[in-house]
Write a protein that binds this DNA or RNA. Structure first.
Lengths: 223, 223
DNA sequence: TCGGCGGGGATTGTTGACAATCTTGTCGCC
DNA sequence: GGCGACAAGATTGTCAACAATCCCCGCCGA
């Protein structure tokens, strides 16, 4: 989906694009906020040409929205859209998990188990920030094991569109207790090279994320 | 994934982008062929600025590949990539089919059945071109019923990257006989509002497309 | 006081020119 | 005759200026 971008790392255009993406993902620009070209020019010491190219790229990734003669805004993702995006993530990460189960090596399986152990420890100690990091590491490792470039790019793009919602998710009390056993099932299935089981476990996991997403809204959701 | 583009329909930029996309999809520019800006400027009577924007957009869709200082090429999709892309399509269209089964109205179910009847007739009469068109109509209708914007955009983007391979698929003798019953099962499951069944039927159908894709290669594949 | 109507400022859209880079063809040397 | 360096041409990368558009604000009349 996304084009390979390894070719031009370091150019002004790439720097502006990556810098702006980071800034948006970090929450420096809030959803709906206007991205004025002149400001970005100053911030990234780039020309308008470069800034516009960066904005167009990020529009392609779904992070910003451009309207003719009205400029660029940080895209606002409604709850409904967030659910849709997560539904797609559910099936694509399911595919990734299945493929990871088919291709996993012994060493990689051990790495997965190690993450699982760290996760249990983090939950037991109430270190939710660490747990959240491990969660990311787990999903990333599974994707690396699967080695599915197309699915990978899509998931990465979708994830970018959700950072804001994901962030709120991690604040939900009780989430780790819910997701820990799900993660363990995923790890176990991949370790046993059980493709179908891994896919199901991953889908159930993300399905529960969708439920959590919905519950966020009902208790005074995003701004 | 793709940004909404209804805002600027009719502008020079949109015309260049859509025109170029059509040209690539029509096979007017072959995979690997260079897209020289000067030529495109003349062809679409657009400025370089506009042409570059169009190229960048299509790069975001995965149709063209841009390399710094080396210009834009029509992206070449290897068999392996084609399989990957179709695998993702398999799971995402599965999601779409499941959702279509949940939301289908009586009228829409009748429309689906009608397409099924026409398909049977087309295969019986050996009208494979008509069958291929019906195939597209069927998938499009299912997507419309599902009303899943995010999944829709992704499938559309992926489909674009495969036109060349899809085209060859339709030439495979015996394909219609294989896929007709699969289509019938999809239609039946959606008609019965059987979400799980619809998803499975769709996935089996596209899984068989993947097999067909692989077999194409083994008998003297794409240039 | 409220609603329509310009005017001014800000912002984006577009163009053409110039600079940097790559590709190709040729020449000279080994 | 083959190989590498060089130069010319082609192509893309970047920029700054100009034109078009929109939005907000104050003004006028009902």
């Amino acid at each position: 989906m996304l084009p390979d971008r390894e070719k031009d790392r370091g150019t002004a255009a790439a720097q502006a694009r990556d810098g702006l993406r980071e800034a948006i993902l970090r929450g420096e620009y809030l959803p709906g906020e206007r991205l004025v070209e002149a400001q970005l020019i100053e911030r990234f010491s780039a020309s308008r040409f470069t800034v516009r190219a960066a904005l167009q790229d990020l529009a392609g990734e779904g992070l910003v929205q451009m309207e003719r003669n009205r400029g660029a805004h940080v895209r606002k993702v409604s709850l409904e859209e967030a659910v849709e995006i997560t539904e797609v993530r559910m099936v694509v990460e399911g595919l990734i998990a299945a493929r990871a189960a088919e291709r996993v090596t012994g060493e990689q399986a051990a790495e997965l188990s190690e993450i699982g152990r760290l996760m249990r420890a983090a939950v037991a100690d109430g270190e939710y920030r660490a747990y959240s990091d491990l969660n990311q590491r787990l999903h990333a490792l599974i994707r690396r094991i699967a080695g599915h470039g197309t699915a990978d790019r899509i998931v990465e793009t979708l994830r970018g569109q959700l950072v804001r919602h994901q962030f709120m998710l991690s604040l939900l009390p009780g989430r780790p207790q819910t997701s820990l056993p799900q993660h363990e099932r995923i790890i176990a299935a991949i370790g046993q090279r059980d493709a179908k089981g891994a896919e199901n476990a991953m889908r159930e996991h993300i399905a529960s994320v969708i439920e959590a997403l919905r519950s966020i809204d009902s208790l005074g959701g995003p701004a």
